[in-house]
Simulated assay, not measured.
Amino acid sequence: MKRRTPPDSPGLFPDLPLVPDFSLESRAKRKGLWPVAGTDEAGRGPLAGPVVAAAVILDPKRIPEGLNDSKKLSAVQREALYQQILECAVVSIASSSPKRIDLIDIRKASLDAMRRAVAGLDLEARHVLTDGRDVPMGLTCSGEAVVKGDARSVSIAAASIIAKVMRDRMMARAGLVYPDYGFEVHAGYGTDRHRSAIVTHGPCPLHRMSFRPLKRDQEAAPAP
C-alpha cells in the first residue's frame, strides 16, 4: 500500500484527490491500539430503505489494491473489491430499519448501526476509525472520527464499499417485494421516478415517513 508523501514544492501543486492509506491505522498500532476497525455507512439520504453500516478490520499484509471511497468507484469495481475484502478481512454488517430511522432520526440510527457493526466483529477491535464527525456511543474501545475518512483510511474505505454493496443488494431485493417503486434502479433515493411512484401509489413500509416530502405530505393530509 503506497503512502502519501508531501510535495517538494508546497503551494504550487493544485489540490489532488485524497487517496486512502494505512497511516491512521499504523499510528494507532504504534500506540498499542490493535486491531483497528474502520466503519462507515451507506444510505443516509434516501427516502426509503434501511441505513446499512459495516465495520472492517484489514490484514496489513493483505490489503486489496484500489480501495477508495465507494462513491468514487463504479458498481463493477465495488463488487470486485467487496469479494476481495470478504476474503482477506474481518467484516461485520448491521442496519437500522426505516421505522427505527423515523423513531430516533437518521444520524442516531446511522451511528447505532455502526456501533452494532463494530460489536459484531469476530475479532474485538481496540480502536475504531469512523467516517464523519461523530464517534458512535457505546463502543467498548477508543474511537476516532475522521472527516472524509473514506478518502483517508483504507479501513474506512473498505467499510464504505461493504456497506454500499450490501445496501444496493438489499434495495434490489426490495424492488422485487415492492415492484411499483423501482427500488432496484434508484435504491430509494428521491429521483423523479421515485417521487412520481409515491404520488401514484402512496408510501410503502420501506419509506421513511420522517423525511420530506413524505413528512410534509403526511402533515398536509386531511384528518380522517
Rank of each mutant, 00 (worst) to 15 (best):
R100V: 09
R100T: 07
S23H: 12
V90K: 10
G190Y: 07
A109Q: 05
A221S: 14
A163H: 07
P64E: 00
D134H: 14
Y189S: 05
F183N: 07
K148S: 10
S210Q: 09
R3N: 15
R4S: 15
V147G: 06
G11Q: 09
R193S: 07
S153N: 12
S155D: 04
V91A: 06
C141E: 01
T130C: 13
L121Q: 02
E124A: 12
D8I: 12
Q218P: 03
C141A: 02
L206Y: 03
H194T: 01
L123K: 13
G66P: 14
R4V: 15
I161S: 03
G143A: 03
D8S: 09
F22G: 00
A55N: 04
D69E: 01
R133D: 03
G143H: 04
R3H: 15
R193Q: 07
M170D: 10
P20D: 05
D134G: 03
K2G: 15
S26I: 12
V90F: 14
M1S: 15
H186I: 08
S110N: 13
D192S: 10
P7N: 15
T130K: 01
E144Q: 06
A151G: 12
P17N: 06
P14V: 04
P222S: 06
Q77N: 07
P136Q: 03
I198R: 02
P205I: 09
I57F: 01
Y189R: 05
S9P: 02
T130P: 01
Y82T: 03
V19K: 07
I101S: 00
L129Y: 05
P46I: 08
R107A: 11
S160E: 04
S110V: 08
P64F: 00
S97N: 04
I93S: 08
I63R: 01
D134Y: 09
S23Q: 14
D122H: 13
F13I: 08
L123D: 12
